[in-house]
Design a protein around this nucleic acid. Structure first.
Length: 878
RNA sequence: GGGGGCAUGGCGGAAUCGGUAGACGCAGCGGACUUAAAAUCCGCAGGUCUCAAGACUGUGGGAGUUCAAGUCUCCCUGCCCCCA
């Protein structure tokens, strides 16, 4: 008769132990942040989630990675801050309000409660006493306070701007929230251009600092640094001024400036183009062209920036009827407007050099403008010119005093001449533009200013913060922001003159809220300032930040910007928020697609995974691993996995299956395999207990002498060394876990033959190494073995394995008497030989030459050359 | 088009400095236990040839440097990501 599973002590039942230990740890306040005491502070941070209501595998991966890091650091004696919070403002809450009539605040709170309890089942060592949510007034009060800091510093301003308007969500989007096809990142709608008065943060003022500090971020992936540098897009060039000839032939006082990185091509400029919304278009349009120009401007207004600048689109434009003078050659060239020139990029005007710019070339050909070649490839002649733009560097021709110069030399010479003669100067240009932060939405942080007819924009005084979101609001989903419709809330006295005034009804981009949350965790309940200087300077910069690559530009750039501004305001003692960054890969689910019907099939409906067939038509299905999503039926619910296998298996699997930065393919069979490993550990400890082996102090310490003892100690200390190496530098959890498997395999074979002291050391080390990865099982086995009775004299050690110190490898245990020496002949491995570990090169050479292997392969000849790599191999070259 | 990255068994992935390629796991195969199955335990396993011992071959393809190349250099092909 088999024993009842629950009463069978030889079975590992995670459900029976995990909740119990989680309760025990809470009672011990195990995860509290030690504000004082010994040990270096260490800040381990995961990117906080949006409280959508359900935890997905991407979250699990993110938080487990950070948790293992945090637990290892604690065991190594550091004081660790490991907090969690909620990026809680945003559109889904408001959409829920519109669709289902629930209050966004209530909806969000419910979701937070649900996700928190799901997270807690993972056994994360998070200090929940420091939990924050960006939608709570005691948090967003400080977001508003920080906004006022930006306002005071001249870094927040309002501007009438052509903005990205999302017709579905009825709101304005930042450039970063519009994808390459001109669609909203959230609704997927084609974005339109609209002219509205908006709030901006002057991130461009920090463009240089944001680029220049990138090389110092050595703990960041190269990829992310490159992406940020490209996003900022700094280029060195020149601003050149063209004087203007009005349609009636008269000179105009104000010249037009262009920015170019190719000042060397100035003699090739045969026309000049303004953006259709450039402020001078109207005044420089001749009466004859007025109708065509107005029609063209109308056409362009409806297009997104991406549409206008796409390379594969025809370059459309119309002439204004005015002319400008090429400042270098003195030639009179026509002035045009074209859709591919953007008003807010550079000066809103570009010089057209068709011979040396592909876009200009296409435009010139379409509109029959002259092409004038002024650069030739070095070593060629002018005749070699083909029917395409020559966009590379070369040597100047047809450029008067600059003929014969190289492109690089000419850029300097021409810029210097322009500067001396007053028609230009060197200039830096950025792709980055100011950050649009206004949102015409309810569920966001209100912008704390009042518009007064007599005083203008007046900041809400700090002591009146927060400007609270009113709770009772009607959500129709149409027209203006719900806040704008609340007259009671909108109408307030001006803080300065007390006259009637109106509140700002825009709320902030949620990226504002998430640009400083990592500072708040240092003292999350402080009610006098957003963060105390001593607290942030103690804990920050963040030692290890973990999150998805999708934030490589948005969140990570904004956070760096905030940090630098706050440093310059004297509020922080550092200029970069995140010292080390790990961008974890996606979790992908097995995806079955019918290539004929183009429909997805749920894995549960596929009866034989080795021969996947459509359950209806019987057609062969295509198998791939894709990002988990509802529409592909390929999602795996973390709650179900925890229910079936326990949190420890989920944690181990997710860490073992792939290196953290790589995409991870979820595979049920591999999860099963991971569960089996934990069961083997359980049985290993169980069999030790059966034989009376525990972690209780031994009365007599027998000297470790047997071969089994030496071998076991070698395995133990080899594992400690290897795991240590995997956790330093790049966090290689996958190989760390494989080392644990190797150790457990070795112990299964050796522990019975080992003496009690050595066996104890092995058990103890295995469990300590396991503790960060599978905290519940490690604790259970530790307590079963009576580990606390052997807490090594550390008074703090009692109560939990998680208060123990990380094991230290004993180098002496790794020493071997003999090692296998590889014998190569002409670089090919021909065999190996056991040799004394401490043999010197000369001895190794002699041993190798005397070996049977050498006899066989050298056929009695003396080798021409012998290479000895001590401890590794001997290569004999005949 | 520009920038960045990747390519290793049936699969996920290992392999500090150039030094025994394929650790660890999944799937597979064989065996033990069992009436049987599951679970568990033991073993095999890159490919080709061979009864075997063994030999040859092998890290996307091609060249090069080296005593020695998955690792370094150049070229090509394919895939992924970012920006256009």
């Amino acid at each position: 008769m088999p024993a009842h599973p629950l009463s069978d002590p030889s079975r590992y039942l995670p459900q029976a132990i995990e909740e119990r230990w989680q309760r025990h740890w809470r009672e011990l306040d195990l995860d509290d942040t030690p504000e004082q005491g010994e040990g270096e502070p260490c800040y381990a941070l995961s990117m906080f989630p949006y409280p959508s209501g359900s935890l997905h595998m991407g979250h699990v991966r993110n938080y487990v990675i950070t948790d293992v890091y945090a637990r290892v650091q604690r065991m190594r004696g550091r004081r660790v801050l490991h907090p969690m919070g909620w990026d809680a403002f945003g559109l889904p809450a408001e959409n829920a309000a519109i669709e289902r009539g629930v209050n966004p605040a209530d909806w969000t709170e419910q979701n937070i409660a649900q996700m928190r309890s799901q997270l807690q089942r993972l056994g994360l060592s998070i200090d929940w006493k420091r939990e924050i949510a960006t939608c709570h007034p005691d948090y967003y009060r400080w977001t508003q306070w920080l906004f006022l800091q930006f306002l005071d510093a001249g870094l927040a301003y309002q501007k009438e701007a052509s903005v990205n308007w999302d017709p579905i969500d009825q709101t304005v989007l930042a450039n970063e929230q519009v994808d390459g096809e001109g669609r909203s990142w959230r609704s997927g709608a084609k974005v339109e251009k609209r002219l509205l008065r908006q709030w901006f943060l002057r991130i461009t003022a920090y463009a240089d600092a944001l680029v220049d500090d990138l090389p110092s971020l050595t703990g960041w992936p190269e990829r992310v640094r490159t992406m940020q540098a490209n996003w900022i897009g700094r280029s060195e060039g020149a601003e050149l001024r063209f004087s203007v000839v009005a349609p009636d032939g008269s000179a105009v006082a104000e010249p037009i400036s262009v920015f170019t990185t190719r000042a060397d091509t100035i003699y090739g400029a045969t026309y000049l183009v303004l953006a259709p919304d450039h402020p001078r278009v109207e005044s420089l349009t001749s009466p004859e062209e007025a109708l065509a120009v107005a029609a063209f401007c109308d056409l362009v207004t409806g297009q997104s920036e991406q549409e206008r600048t796409a390379e594969d689109r025809p370059k459309r434009g119309v002439p204004l009827g005015s002319y400008v003078i090429n400042p270098a050659s003195g030639a009179k060239i026509p002035l045009w407007i074209a859709d591919y020139v953007l008003a807010d990029y550079g000066t809103g005007a570009v010089m057209g050099v068709p011979a040396h710019d592909q876009r200009d070339f296409l435009f010139a050909r379409r509109h029959e403008l002259p092409v004038r070649q002024v650069i030739i490839p070095e070593g060629s002649n002018a005749e070699a010119y083909l029917g395409e733009a020559w966009t590379q560097e070369g040597v100047l021709i047809e450029s008067e005093r600059f003929n014969g110069l190289s492109s690089a030399a000419a850029r300097q010479a021409i810029t210097a001449a322009a500067s001396a003669e007053g028609w230009g100067q060197a200039r830096r240009q950025y792709r980055l533009r100011d950050w649009l932060i206004s949102r015409q939405r309810y569920w966001g942080c209100p912008i704390p200013v009042v518009h007064c007819p007599s005083c203008g924009v007046v900041p809400v005084p700090a002591k009146q913060l927060p400007v609270e979101l009113p709770r009772d609001v009607a959500f129709s989903g149409k027209g203006a922001s719900p806040l704008a419709q609340l007259e009671d809330w909108v109408n307030v006295p001006c803080p300065r003159c007390q006259g009637p005034a109106r509140r700002e009804t825009d709320t902030m981009d949620t990226f504002m809220c998430s640009s400083w949350y990592y500072l708040r965790y240092s003292d999350p309940h402080c009610s006098t300032v957003p963060f105390r200087r001593e607290a942030v300077n103690q804990w920050l910069p963040v030692d290890q930040y973990v999150g998805g690559i999708e934030h490589a530009i948005l969140h990570l750039l904004y956070s760096r910007f905030f940090t630098k501004v706050l440093r310059d305001r004297g509020l922080l003692g550092f200029g970069e928020p995140f010292e080390r960054l790990l961008t974890q890969g996606m979790v992908q689910g097995i995806t079955y697609r019918n290539p004929h019907s183009n429909r997805y099939v749920a894995p549960a409906d596929v009866s034989d995974p080795n021969d996947p067939r459509d359950p209806i038509s019987g057609e062969l299905l295509e198998v791939s691993y894709d990002k988990m999503s509802k529409s592909k039926y390929n999602g795996v619910d973390p709650a179900k996995v925890i229910e079936t296998y326990g949190a420890d298996t989920a944690r181990m699997f997710i860490l073992f299956k792939a290196p953290p930065e790589k995409d991870l393919e979820w595979d049920d069979a591999d999860v099963e395999g991971q569960f089996r490993f934990l069961q083997r550990l359980w049985r290993l400890v169980d069999s030790c207990l059966q034989r009376g082996l525990t972690l209780a102090p031994l009365a007599v310490q027998a000297p470790a002498a047997s071969e089994a003892d030496r071998e076991l100690r070698r395995a133990v200390h080899g594992a400690i060394t290897a795991v240590q190496a995997d956790l330093e530098g790049n966090l290689q959890f996958n190989t760390a876990i494989s080392e644990l498997m190797k150790l457990s395999n070795a112990m299964a074979g050796l522990i019975e033959a080992a003496s009690p002291g050595v066996a104890q050391e092995a058990l103890r080390s295995l469990l300590l190494l396991l503790a960060p990865f599978a905290p519940h099982l490690a604790e259970e086995l530790w307590q079963k073995l009576g580990g606390d009775s052997d807490s090594g004299g550390d008074g703090d050690g009692a109560g939990s394995i998680h208060r123990q110190r990380w094991p230290v490898a004993d180098a002496a245990a790794l020493v071997r008497d003999t090692i296998p020496l590889v014998i190569q002949v002409k670089g090919k491995v021909r065999g190996s030989l056991d040799v004394p570990a401490d043999a010197d090169s000369a001895t190794l050479e002699q041993l190798a030459l005397a070996s049977d292997i050498a006899q066989k392969w050298l056929e009695g000849q003396a080798p021409r050359r012998v290479i000895v790599v001590p401890g590794k191999l001997v290569n004999l070259v005949p």
